[in-house]
Design a protein around this nucleic acid. Structure first.
Lengths: 303, 303
DNA sequence: CCCGGAACGAAAATATCTTTCATAGCGTGA
DNA sequence: TCACGCTATGAAAGATATTTTCGTTCCGGG
């Protein structure tokens, strides 16, 4: 039997470090060593042959090839080529760094700087890692959807609500569910032409996967927004949108950066759908804007 | 006898076309064909093997290798690597004018790039505009708060919930209110040592200002997170945290970028409070992490 | 017309990459 | 605790790609 690791992911342009982070959890120890070396010194690795890299990381050629596959390349040769490109790339750029972790005794100004920097990084990684083909497909089905259900619990629940609010604004029928029971109850109603979206960073949140499965089984088109494109949630997803996984620290739980990443994806979906349904979306948008204007005190602020 | 062509020249960084022109006169006919192909389409050639390139140019592998040597590389392999780098380089050159507004007919990839860029910009602006003194003061009162109420409606309502979720995680007593009536009802209960936070981009959302006023009148410490530090909400705020206002466009309503900005402020508050109350926050954080671990299916993803 | 020498490519030799396969190790459940 | 099954892993075989070797061809001048 042939070993097939390749996750649909395309050859990847840049942001390899981000991809490594995303895929790291699904890697074995040895593969992680290789991935680490590659992410840490792209230029250096580009100069190495499979054997060289295998020795450097204390593994075997086979493992190196496996890692390359997992990262989305047909083989080591192609990874190496990409590495060379990336090296040339970053050589031109620069890189000072606010990269340090946030510490307990950081002055507040540093916290602001570091947080802002981290979130910017998360955005960049997400944008780089987002599969535009999948995104386009997701937008297409959403634009034609009769009804949209969005599942998310915890922090992702808020993202689900955000998406729902946005879709409602442009005239779609959308609901967010954070109650797993109600979610399943509603999922049963879905059928073709309907869309179900699951949002989960871990990719293995049962409370979110279950309703997605039900929707999937009932013939709805399903979309997963997750940081683990190889997680259980993927089984029931027609389209997978990958969010990035930033390094986390004690003070900065993963949930925090995943939210930033998820929201970017959500925004992309929203804009995409708004574009596709512009005729309907534009009036709906201004209508909701008008309606809200009255909710602000008349002598609205100091001009 | 070995064939030695190499002209002292080192591996060459970029400007390959120039080198080709310089060396052309000293090349034989077949070598010129190869050099031409390479200079004409670096990216394309980088994808080819020696044999491929030999066929493409109607020559032999040996000739290709000779050409690579003449250009200063140890062999074809290295030329190819350099080619890949060069290709990546010139590709990055043509960025999709990322600063432009998002248009109805933008391809999806551009939308992603532009959105990511805009949000990054928003983050930078927010970080730059945030008054660390005010932030520090807000953190101080939050860290000592007996109870925290957060008001926000619409998109800001989700931010309010986000903040609440985070504060709860580190052991504070916090509630988010998006129902103005209930908000006021609760605000009446507040007194000194309690904190009320209003989140409103416009700074003039009556539904949010009203409960803040009530809390203020009852002696609670009040904080406003707003894009209009001079708006009506400021009257009742002891501390004002300013969010940035990014330019908006038809497809990208203000609510969208204000959210990014608000969330950064919220994160800063959270981290700040977590630092100040580290003794209590750290265990609470890991406890909530532990508790959630069980909500994920055990066979979490591949591996 | 013949000769010397450079240009060139076919094919051998080598290096590199990929696949196969057997084994060691690890977690799981009895 | 121990056996079991399954995954991870590297050694080595197998396939490709690259480099080298070497003979042939093609020219230009005697």
């Amino acid at each position: 039997m042939k070993e097939i690791f390749s996750r649909g992911a395309p050859p990847a342009p840049a942001a390899l470090a981000a991809k490594v982070r995303t895929l790291a959890p699904s890697m074995t120890r040895s593969m992680q060593r290789v991935a680490e070396a590659v992410a840490g010194d792209p230029a250096g690795c580009a100069a190495l042959t499979v054997t060289g890299l295998a020795e450097l990381t204390g593994t075997s050629e086979a493992t190196v090839v496996r890692t390359a596959r997992l990262l989305g390349y047909p083989g080591y040769r192609d990874l190496r080529l990409a590495l060379a490109g990336l090296a040339a790339h970053q050589q031109s750029g620069r890189a000072p760094a606010v990269t340090a972790d946030i510490a307990v005794d950081d002055p507040i100004a540093d916290v602001v700087a570091k947080l802002a920097h981290d979130e910017q990084q998360t955005l960049a990684d997400t944008a780089a890692g987002l599969d535009t083909v999948q995104l386009g497909a997701a937008v297409t089905v959403l634009a034609a959807a009769r009804r949209v259900d969005v599942y998310g619990v915890g922090a992702s629940g808020l993202v689900a609500q955000d998406l729902t609010q946005k879709l409602l604004r442009i005239g779609l029928i959308a609901h967010a569910h954070s109650d797993p029971h109600l979610a399943v109850t509603n999922a049963v109603q879905l059928r073709a032409k309907d869309v179900a979206i699951a949002i989960t960073h871990s990719g293995s949140t049962g409370d979110v996967i279950e309703p997605l499965r039900v929707a999937f089984d009932h013939g709805a088109t399903t979309i997963a927004i997750t940081g683990r494109p190889d997680g259980p949630v993927a089984q029931y997803a027609d389209h997978i949108l990958t969010t990035s996984t930033a390094r986390e620290s004690e003070l900065r739980p993963a949930a925090m950066s995943s939210r930033t990443s998820q929201l970017l994806v959500v925004d992309c979906l929203f804009i995409g759908v708004a574009q596709r349904t512009y005729e309907r979306a534009a009036p709906a948008l201004s209508a909701s804007y008008e309606a809200l204007a009255h909710r602000h005190s008349p002598r609205s602020a100091a001009r």
